[in-house]
Every structure is written in structure tokens, then in C-alpha cells.
Nucleic acid binder design. Structure first.
Length: 1161
RNA sequence: GGGCGUAUAGCUCAGGCGGUUAGAGCGUCACACUGAUAAUGUGAAGGUCCGUGGUUCAAGUCCACGUACGCCCA
């Protein structure tokens, strides 16, 4: 590598200097590759390269094939991220998968468009904008003006787009930012209102009530996710809990019998009692009627859950006296027992008369006992007070029972003025609560109950209670009007269509997602907010002339209102406040007084997300043809929680609008956790900083760590720096080191002129030679770029066959894995191959490289080139650098995926080499057992295996397999024997009987335990082919015989080969002769000296090929050994002059080395 | 409170239709090997398979109950 001789490799590099670095800095390489891609336009080329085959109509020919993917295109949908925060590991993880699958499919020949999507609407954006503006409630938004507020939201959601692009780019995710889609674009929003109108026209939308957490200070409902804004939302709070009486007046099956009995109902929200409209009981709960003592505070009959009678004994007036407790007295006073289901429809007397005029309030079905399965007996009385407007379960229960939702408080949670007015019966029991905030009114209500004799018990109750995340006000639950999608109407179709979706991991299909579908409820899609797609519904502002209109396009709006909604700049814009400005006279109002106004709500942001497949292309207004052929998507990926989010809402809309799935294959991955197994938390600092990892270990390292983990199979993943570095060690470094090794030798070959390696082909054009394995060499192989006649006389060794076959298997395995979206399996295959390549092929081939056997260069080149292509989706940056260095080509990502069928499957070569590896591994263990270090040569290893002749080979010279075994284990002579020719007993090998209980159990029943015991204890025999164990005869198949080492056999160590290992080693074993002769000891010492000299060379920082003069100082014994093996020592250490200095018998061996002038040719 | 899920080595996880000696990777320790490699090889220690009860010739595996944790919904 001098200036006169520029190196052959790397043939292309992103680095300024053409050099393969020994100590590699991956992050630097990555940064350079990213720049190269940008300058080169590689991403766009990778898409433009692939053609779409079109049919006669001009539509892409895209029928789904059996694997679920399409002919020439692979359709990917980007799940839109929300950009008002910075990306975290979860986004990175998803982003890597979103890159990997399209990269793979591109190499497989598909055209894969990838548009980035931005989710821009919704409450999180508003909340963030409010924070920026220092606002705390809706009144401030209204006074600022919706226009300006929405401007702030728009700026907020796009605040971090640059940072997002930088992250996405740094993680080497190829995605089109220029041709992106944003949910705030008017085209996107027009498709969204189109979808709403479609649903409306199909009768799948309706208006109703929903109960939401509500902040009475901000006067706004909160979404459930705001309850999880931070950890301080739920705080302990003390509330009064009261138990009140509801006297039964009749009704139901038992009304006559139970009339006059008091239902005892419990609540922690006394302020909802004025709107009590029903009492819920559990169907299977047993209720008891107790006769309270006449002299007590509550004489009469009371009903409550039987389990809770004792708990209420004292409240009902029972007392402890003599030996009888109050609880026992109460139990004794039980005069009747009823199951909840028998109590249905009992009627009771309301507490007050404010709402008893059914003609005004529609309460003709109120004040009844209802059966609800949510009732328990862990708190209260087992009878639950229900107020339809103030609890979600209450509301649903009431709706089913025909009871209306009636609000008793205003937006500030203050009781309405009507409470100061007389009730139909003429009194004003709760006059003092009118205008009072609900919590403040509790006291007055409780006092009233007490005065009315309706209070059984009052107790303070401490519970975890939600608070507003902004103002810390305790929330209430309150009904608000809402628009719904009637999901329950087409739930069955959703379940049926789910059958067409391939879920990874598969259990999600019928598990998390399938069950969620089966229990689907109607989808509340309206939000009383500002920044979102509008609900395109206009309603008359006078209920006397009701009229509802729904619009599904800008043109329809223009037709009805005279113009598009236009923003300040005059552009068509569907956002508030512009859309709200469209009004018109109500055509159904003959007086001409009332006006059609848009309902104020905006759509749930998930409606946007679910519309993404069609809205991203402005369907149906544009691209109708495109959409028809690019839906469902071939592939999407998001985290498992999206079974209730994106996956779900896309499925709803795809089913309702198109009656087909929105996606064919979906990966739902697990959650990324911090190093302590908890959720990642900035304040806890329990995860490595993303940028630090990028800078220190690199994007490919992070990609590998995430992709190789079980997280894509649904498990959770703990992110640790060690885990990331482990991937570097297992794959990235071996891959780089293999490349470095190759370049080092290829560059210095031919006296420094270098050698350009080429792909290995057989004469008939297959990639691999089909030469006989087991021979020490095969027929000549052709080298790519040369005619068959011109091929140099390359000979593949069994080792070459092995690694080439392994490369073919690698391609097959990774192809299969990625075709089924099994990413971690693909990683495992690559990891295994990297290990075989470096720790076996290259390690075993060092001498050949040193000796400039160019066949090995070509084989390593072929294998590395294959490896980098197969690794390209999983390690896109490092693969690129190595592949370009090897080939000088433009990009590995523009190549075709290797065709597994062009790799000859050479099972025999693999099998024999695996057996060889098994033998060396077991041999190592034998050495360990015999306490003989490897540098100590041993005389003989006897290898007994079935079909020994295959290992021995047919060649005249020594079998390469035997040679490998001898070298690896430092054995003078390997004796290969066929298992059929030897008697195991002579080597101390015995047999062990194992009963196959699965086979024998059914036949022998209880007896099988005796046979098992006998086999274990040695109480068994074999005579004339009949095996008897524990006195029982076993039949063929009911037992197996395995070889086992019975004892140490004198001067040798014996081991049995793992029966499961490759090459049919069943019954094979090794015998290691551990006898040491003085000659062997001397050679061992000489080898130790070689090691000492090598270490000295390394310390002196000499070049690999430097010739040296060596001076050794050592004990007489060592000197003698070195003298006896001086040729060995000199050759191994490139020593030309060897000086020996004899010291004391205890002298430590020391070596001094000096480089000599002549350099190695 | 409800639904779903999980519980196996210090850590992360595998463990077909139940089969008798429960595995892997990482980590730890010891030894070995090493002139491409911040690598590698061999071995050792490490288990109340969450608990209790049941079914069975046989239970980590099936059933019931309980406990703990997680996610979702309240």
C-alpha cells in the first residue's frame, strides 16, 4: 500500500482515502454513506429502477399473489406520526421496520413508493399550542379568536418537522418527504368530510350523549388521554359518601310484596342525587331485607346486598349487647332474601320532585331498579345510585331503559336556577343549592337528606380521583352531546374482514384485535374543540323548524352557500373558523327567521388517521384509479396499542366505506422500555440518549438491536447500551473484520500489485461447484469474467463448499423469513452466518490467504458480496460501504436480491463440515478434561463415527476434514474408524436405556413407572433383542439406547458425540490418547515459545510480514526444546536469525525481536 | 371495578397433543486459544417452573382458586 501502488480495495468508498480501516468507526462511515446517497439520488433511483407492469386499462397490474404481495408493486402506508414532539425510541423502532420491509421488497424487484405522513390535528396539538400561548381555558381561546388560535396550532404541529426529518434521515430510513401528506391539507380534509357523508348516507352516523371527564373551571370536556397527561392527574381526594333510602312503591314482579321496603343506595357524589333516575343491582347478587329495630334511627324494612348487612348493622340501629354483636342481630333480623334479577323494574319514590313531571322531562320510565352487571358488593350497599348525565355506565344503562339524560348543572358545574323554583308539589327542598358549584352543594344536599330522614349513613371516603392536568381542579363526569359512528351496525363485517388480514404476531388477530372488534362499541367522533377536520353537518338554529344537512365536498358547499369556505388569504380552507362562516337560511322555515349553522364540533383526530388510505391521495376527487389498485396496503406497522387506534379506525372506515380491509399484512410490535424495565422516562434517565447512540454506535447498530429483538414478535424490549453493543459485536464487527481481512490480503497479493477477486461459478454457470466433496480438491471452477478455457485452475476445497453452501442456505433462510415478515428470524440467520464465516471459514483459511491461494479470495469475495446484499435491509449503511468496496458498484440497494435457487444446496458438504466442527468441539472438551493445553501436541485422537469413509474422503492425500481436526486439536495422528467396525466396550463406552414414556405409557399404564425406575437404576437387560427394564418387557419403539461413557479408560480420555449433531454422528465417540512423550513435551514447549515471540512481535508493533532477528533467554529445558524444533519456531515467527541464551533452570522465557531490512515479497 | 395478558437460571426469554435428567442467549467464574478480529473456544456454578388444590400411571404443560405485575377500558 504505497503511493506507487494504490490499493485495489476498496474499489469504491465514501471515504476520502481509499483504505479499509482496521479499527472501524461505524458512525463516521454512516454519515458519509448518507451524504453519498443524498448526492447520488440513490433512494429515488431505487424506486425509478423498478417498473410497474400495467394492464390494458393503464392500471398497474397488481393482483395479489398467494404470499399476499402484489405482482409488481408493494404498497406501503405510513402510519402518520404526530410532530409536535421529538421522536423517541418507539418511533425509531417503527421507522426501522418501515424502512426494512420496503428495502427488502425493492430488492426483490417491487416498486415501493413511500410517502411520509404527518398527523397534524387534534387535542394534543391544541394543548401544546395553549401551553405555548400561556392559556389555560377555552374562554381564552374564544377571546383570542379561533383563527389565531388555529394558526398557533398549525405552527405547533409542524414545529419539529425539521428535527423529524433529521432523525428519520439519520436512521437511514428512506421515505419521501417531498411528496408527503399532511392531514391539515384541504385535499386531505375534503376526503375526510366525503367519508363522513358516505357514512351519513348509509345511515351509520347519529347524535347522542357521551359522558366525559369535564373541567368546570376551564369549562371543557377532557379526552380520556388527558387523564394520563402526567402522574399528578390522579390524586387522593376525600369525598363524602352517603347511603340513602329509596322506598319501594311497587312495580316489577315483587312490587306488591316489597312495597314500603327501603332500597339502600350508595354514592360518592351526593351532588348527583337530585338527578337520580334509577338504582342498579347485580343480577346474581343476593339481597336481604332487614327489619330494623323500632327504637332505632331507621325503623322499618331495608334492602341491601346480603354480604353487606353486617357492615350496616349499626347504621340500622342494631347494637352490641351481652354476647350478641350488632352484626349478629342484624343477620338475625333478615326477613327475606332475593336475587338481583328478580328485583327488576321495582319502582321507588324519588328523593325530590324537581323532575317528576314526565310531560316536561320524559321521565316516565325513571325511578326504577335496573339490572347491571357492573354492580359489585366491594363498596357501598350493592345497590348503585344512577344519574344518567354523570356517569358513563349510568348513561348507557339509562339509555337502554328509556330514561333521558338530564343535566342539573351549567357549564361551570353550578346548579341551575330551577332548583330555587318550587317543584310540582310546591316546595323548594334544595333552594339553597341553586347557583352553587357541585362540590360546594354536597353539604346542603346531605343536610336536606338528613332532615328528610332519607340519610342512612354519611362517611368520608378517600379515593384516587382525576384532576385537570392544567389547573388541578378536580374533574367531574358529565354528559356532552356527541356524534357517533354506528360501529355496532357493521361489527360483524369487521370481524369477517379481519379474516383477510395477516397479523404479526398472529395471536393479535383473534386476540387483542379480534376480541376488541367483537366487543366494538359505537365510535364517538365529535370533539367540542377547534383544531381539526370539521363535522360537515349544518343544523337549523330553531328547533321548531328542524333540518339537518351534510356536505361531502367543497363543490357541494359552494353550491349550497355560494362559495367555498375561504381563509384569510382567500384560499379554500375547511378549518374553523372559515367553515363556520358558511350559513344560510333554513329552507324548511316558512318564516325565514332560522338559519342553518354548522354544528360546532370537529372530528376526532382518529377519524383523520383512519381516512389516511384514501385521503392521502384526495380520493375520490382525484386518483380514483390509483386508490382502487393500492388498497388494501400490502404492509403497515405500528405498536400494538394501535389495535385501538390507527389499525382500528382504518378498519372501521375501510369496512364501512369499501367493505374490504385497509391492509393485508400488519406488524404490531411491542413496547420499548427503559433499562429498568419501566416505561421510558426522561426524568428517570432510564434509557440511553438516542443521539449518543447514533454518535457512538451508529444507526445500523441501533437498527440491529431493535430488529433482532423479540419486540417485533409482540414482546417488550428493554433498551440498554450493552444490548446495542452486543449487536455490534455479533454482526457488525465480524462483517467488517471479514471485509478488512479480505481487503488486506487482496491488496498485498501479487507482490503488492493486488488481486481483483471475482464471483465463483461452476462450468455450467451455477454459482457453486458441484464437485465431489470429501476429496481434497475438485475440478476447475470458472471465474466470473473469464471464459471457461481461460479459467485459472481454481480448486474448491471442502471448506469452500461448506461456506458457499452456507451462503446459499443463508439466502434461503432470510428470504423465507422476510417473506413472512419474521424479522428476528432473518437476523438470527445473519448472525449465525457471520459467526461461521469469521470463526470457521476465515480462521481456517488464513494459511491459504497467506499463501495467495486465489480460489479462497474468490470464494470469500463471493460469500461476502452475497452476505452484504442479504444484510442490506437490516444493515443498510455498513452493507453499502462494504458492498461498494467489494464491487465498485453504485449501491447495494439498487441490486437484485440473490436468488436462492441459483445456490446449489450442498447438504453433504455442510453435513461433513458440521460433523468436523462437532468433533473438534468435543475434542476441545476432552483436552479440557485431560487438562492438556492445546499447544501441547498429543499423539493420537481416535474418531469413531458411522460412515467414516465419507470423512476420510477418496483422495490420495490426507482428508481435509481429518487435517482440520488434527490442526484444530493439535494432534499428531487422527485415526478414523467406522462405528460398525469397532466395539464400543473396548474403549469404555457403554449403553444406557431410556424408556420412551410417551410410547410405553399408554400400554403399560401405572407399570411404566417401574420400567422407568429400572432403566434409571441400571436394572435392565437386553437379551436376544428383547429389552427388559424393571422386570417389564419393552417393545420396539418404547425405548432408546444411547451411548455413554462408562469410565476413564486408562491413559485416554473418552467422550461421546452429541447424537443430535450433524453428519449422523449418532453412536460416534472420540478417544484421546493423553500419553506424553519427551518429544511431544518438547514440541509443546517450542510452541509456547512461538507464542511468546509472537506476543513480542505484536508489542514491538511489527508488520505481519516483517522478517526478524530473535533473541531468546530461557531455561535450559526450554532452550533444548527450541533447538529441537528450531525450524518450526523460525518459520512460525518469520525469524531469520535465532539467538539462544541459556539461563537458570527457573528462568522465565523472554524474547527480544528486531525487524530485519529485507521485506517480505 | 371490568377485559386481556404475563409469571421458568442473576437478566431477557424458548419450552407441539402432558412423558419423567426443563433449555438458549447474555452476565459471572475458571481454563484455553489468538499476527485480520474491541474477537474466539471449552467448561463450571446458577431453578420451590409464582402459590394452593385438583385431574392423571405421569403436570412447567390441563382444570379451579389465589397472589403479583403489565396493558387497555372505566
Amino acid at each position: 500500500m504505497t503511493e506507487q501502488n494504490p490499493p485495489v480495495y476498496p474499489r469504491a468508498t465514501s471515504a476520502s482515502e481509499r483504505k479499509v480501516a482496521t479499527s472501524v468507526r461505524f458512525p463516521e462511515i454512516e454519515e458519509r454513506i448518507l451524504k453519498y446517497w443524498e448526492a447520488d439520488g440513490t433512494f429515488h433511483a431505487s424506486i425509478a429502477n423498478r417498473d410497474v407492469v400495467r394492464d390494458q386499462t393503464g392500471h398497474p397490474e397488481n393482483p395479489q399473489d398467494s404470499a399476499g404481495s402484489r405482482g409488481t408493486e408493494f404498497v406501503f402506508y405510513d402510519g402518520p406520526p404526530f410532530a409536535n414532539g421529538l421522536p423517541h425510541y418507539g418511533h425509531l423502532l417503527t421507522g426501522y421496520v418501515k424502512d426494512l420491509v420496503p428495502r427488502y421488497q425493492t430488492m426483490r424487484g417491487k416498486k415501493v413508493e413511500r410517502r411520509f405522513g404527518w398527523d397534524t390535528h387534534g387535542l394534543p396539538a391544541e394543548l401544546s399550542a395553549m401551553k405555548d400561548l400561556g392559556m389555560t381555558d377555552k374562554a381564552e381561546i374564544e377571546s383570542m379568536g379561533i383563527e389565531h388560535f388555529n394558526d398557533a396550532c398549525r405552527a405547533n404541529v409542524l414545529k419539529f418537522t425539521k428535527e423529524w426529518e433529521a432523525y428519520v434521515n439519520r436512521q437511514a430510513r428512506w421515505v419521501d418527504f417531498e411528496n408527503d401528506y399532511k392531514t391539515l391539507n384541504v385535499e386531505f380534509m375534503e376526503s375526510v368530510i366525503w367519508a363522513f357523508k358516505q357514512l351519513h348516507d348509509k345511515g351509520l352516523t347519529y347524535q347522542g350523549f357521551r359522558v366525559l371527564p369535564y373541567c368546570w373551571k376551564d369549562e371543557t370536556p377532557l379526552s380520556n388521554h388527558e387523564l394520563r397527561m402526567d402522574d399528578e392527574v390522579y390524586q387522593e381526594r376525600q369525598d363524602p359518601s352517603v347511603t340513602v333510602t329509596f322506598p319501594i312503591t311497587g312495580g316489577g314482579a315483587l312490587g306488591d310484596q316489597l312495597a314500603g321496603v327501603n332500597l339502600l343506595a350508595w354514592t360518592t357524589t351526593p351532588w348527583t342525587l337530585p338527578t337520580n333516575f334509577s338504582v342498579a343491582v347485580g343480577a346474581e347478587i343476593e339481597y336481604a331485607v332487614v327489619e330494623a329495630p323500632a327504637e332505632g334511627p331507621l325503623p322499618g324494612k331495608h334492602m341491601l346486598a346480603a354480604d353487606l348487612v353486617s357492615a350496616y348493622a349499626k347504621d340500622l340501629g342494631f347494637t352490641d349487647h351481652d354476647d350478641v354483636t350488632a352484626a349478629e342481630s342484624a343477620q338475625a333480623a333478615v326477613i327475606g332474601r332475593y336475587l338481583g334479577k328478580d328485583l327488576a323494574n321495582l319502582q321507588y319514590r324519588p328523593l325530590w320532585d324537581y323532575y317528576t313531571d314526565a310531560s316536561v322531562w320524559g321521565t316516565q320510565h325513571a325511578w326504577r331498579v335496573l339490572i347491571e352487571d357492573y354492580v359489585t358488593t366491594t363498596d357501598g350497599t350493592g345497590l348503585v345510585h344512577q344519574a344518567s348525565a354523570y356517569g358513563e355506565e349510568d348513561q348507557q344503562s339509562s339509555e337502554a331503559a328509556g330514561i333521558p339524560v338530564i343535566l342539573s348543572v351549567d357549564a361551570a358545574a353550578e346548579f341551575l336556577p330551577m332548583f330555587a323554583e318550587p317543584t310540582p308539589s310546591g316546595d323548594t327542598p334544595l333552594a339553597e343549592i341553586a347557583g352553587v358549584q357541585v362540590f360546594a352543594a354536597n353539604r346542603a344536599i346531605i343536610n336536606r337528606l338528613k332532615a328528610d330522614g332519607r340519610l342512612v349513613r354519611e362517611q368520608s371516603y378517600v379515593h384516587s380521583y382525576p384532576h385537570c392536568w392544567r389547573c388541578r381542579t378536580p374533574l367531574i363526569y358529565k354528559a356532552v352531546t356527541s356524534w357517533y359512528v354506528a360501529v355496532t351496525e357493521f361489527k360483524d363485517r369487521m370481524v369477517a374482514i379481519n379474516e383477510e388480514i395477516n397479523w404479526i404476531p398472529e395471536n393479535v388477530k383473534y386476540g387483542q384485535f379480534g376480541k376488541w372488534l367483537e366487543n366494538a362499541r359505537d365510535w364517538s367522533i365529535s370533539r367540542n374543540r377547534y383544531w381539526g377536520s370539521p363535522i360537515p353537518v349544518w343544523a337549523s338554529d330553531n328547533p321548531e323548524y328542524p333540518r339537518t344537512e351534510v356536505y361531502g365536498s367543497l363543490e357541494e358547499l359552494k353550491e349550497a352557500f355560494g362559495d367555498y369556505p375561504r381563509n384569510a388569504a382567500g384560499e379554500p380552507d375547511l378549518h374553523r373558523p372559515w367553515i363556520d362562516q358558511l350559513t344560510r337560511p333554513n329552507p324548511d322555515d316558512p318564516t325565514g327567521q332560522s338559519t342553518m349553522r354548522r354544528v360546532e364540533d370537529v372530528l376526532d383526530v382518529w377519524f383523520d388517521s383512519g381516512s389516511m388510505p384514501f385521503a392521502q391521495v384526495h380520493y375520490p376527487f382525484e386518483n380514483a384509479g390509483w386508490f382502487d389498485t393500492h388498497n388494501p396496503a400490502d404492509f403497515i406497522v405500528e405498536y400494538i396499542g394501535q389495535t385501538r387506534g390507527w389499525f382500528y379506525t382504518m378498519h372501521i372506515l375501510a369496512t364501512a366505506l369499501f367493505d374490504r380491509p385497509a391492509f393485508s399484512n400488519v406488524i404490531s410490535h411491542g413496547i420499548v422500555l427503559g433499562s429498568d424495565g419501566q416505561k421510558m422516562s426522561k426524568s428517570l434517565q432510564n434509557y440511553p440518549d438516542v443521539n449518543e447512540v447514533f454518535d457512538r454506535d451508529g444507526s445500523d447498530a441501533m437498527r440491529w438491536f431493535l430488529m433482532a429483538s423479540p419486540i417485533l414478535r409482540g414482546g417488550n424490549l428493554i433498551v440498554t447500551e450493552e444490548g446495542i453493543r452486543e449487536g455490534v459485536r455479533q454482526v457488525l464487527l465480524p462483517m467488517w473484520n471479514a471485509w478488512h481481512f479480505f481487503a488486506l490480503y487482496a491488496n498485498t497479493a501479487n507482490n503488492g500489485a493486488g488481486y481483483i477477486a471475482r464471483n465463483v461459478f461452476t462450468e455450467d454457470g451455477d454459482r457453486l461447484s458441484r464437485t465431489e466433496t470429501g476429496a481434497d480438491s475438485g475440478p476447475p471452477v470458472a471465474i466470473e469474467g473469464e471464459s471457461a478455457e481461460g479459467a485459472h485452475d481454481a480448486r474448491l476445497t471442502p471448506l469452500d463448499h461448506y461456506i458457499l453452501a452456507a451462503a446459499g442456505d443463508l439466502v434461503r433462510e432470510v428470504t423465507e423469513a422476510l417473506d413472512e415478515f419474521n424479522v428476528s428470524r432473518a437476523c438470527e440467520a445473519l448472525r449465525g452466518f457471520a459467526e461461521t464465516l469469521t470463526n470457521w471459514y476465515i480462521r481456517r483459511s488464513r494459511a491459504r490467504f497467506y499463501g495467495e491461494d486465489f480460489t479462497s479470495y474468490d470464494v470469500l469475495y463471493t460469500v461476502l458480496e452475497t452476505f452484504t446484499r442479504v444484510a442490506a435491509p437490516l444493515l443498510p449503511l455498513v452493507s453499502e460501504e462494504i458492498w461498494r468496496g467489494l464491487t465498485g458498484g453504485r449501491s447495494v440497494h439498487l441490486t437484485d436480491w440473490p436468488d436462492p435457487d441459483t445456490y446449489v444446496k450442498d447438504e453433504r458438504a455442510v453435513e461433513l463440515m458440521e460433523l468436523t466442527r462437532t468433533v473438534t468441539s468435543a475434542g476441545s472438551a476432552l483436552r479440557k478434561q485431560a487438562k492438556q493445553r492445546v499447544r501441547q501436541p498429543l499423539a493420537t485422537l481416535t474418531v469413531v463415527v458411522p460412515n467414516a469413509e465419507a470423512l476420510a474422503g477418496t483422495g490420495a492425500s490426507e482428508s481435509p476434514y481429518v487435517q482440520i481436526i488434527a490442526e484444530e486439536l493439535n494432534i499428531k495422528q487422527v485415526v478414523l474408524l467406522d462405528a460398525a467396525d469397532v466395539s464400543p466396550e473396548q474403549f469404555g463406552i457403554g449403553q444406557q436405556l431410556v424408556v420412551n414414556a410417551r410410547a410405553a405409557g399408554p400400554r403399560l399404564g401405572k407399570q411404566v413407572q417401574h420400567a422407568i425406575k429400572g432403566a434409571k437404576s441400571g436394572d435392565w437387560s437386553m437379551a436376544g433383542g428383547v429389552v427388559t427394564a424393571g422386570g417389564l418387557e419393552l417393545q420396539e419403539g418404547e425405548y432408546t439406547l444411547t451411548t455413554t461413557v462408562s469410565e476413564e479408560a486408562g491413559e485416554s480420555a473418552v467422550t461421546v458425540l452429541d447424537a443430535a449433531s450433524a453428519g449422523g454422528a449418532r453412536g460416534g465417540f472420540l478417544v484421546l490418547d493423553t500419553t506424553l512423550t519427551p518429544e511431544l513435551v518438547a514440541e509443546g514447549i517450542a510452541r509456547d515459545v512461538v507464542r511468546t515471540v509472537q506476543a513480542a512481535r505484536k508489542d514491538a508493533e511489527l508488520n505481519v510480514s516483517d522478517r526478524i532477528e530473535t533473541t531468546l533467554t530461557a531455561s535450559p529445558e526450554v532452550i533444548a526444546a527450541v533447538e529441537a524444533h528450531s525450524e518450526l519456531v523460525k518459520a512460525e515467527t518469520l525469524t531469520l536469525t535465532l539467538n539462544l541464551v541459556e539461563g537458570e533452570a527457573t528462568e522465565e522465557t523472554r524474547a527480544t525481536v528486531t525487524a530485519l531490512k529485507e521485506s517480505h515479497a
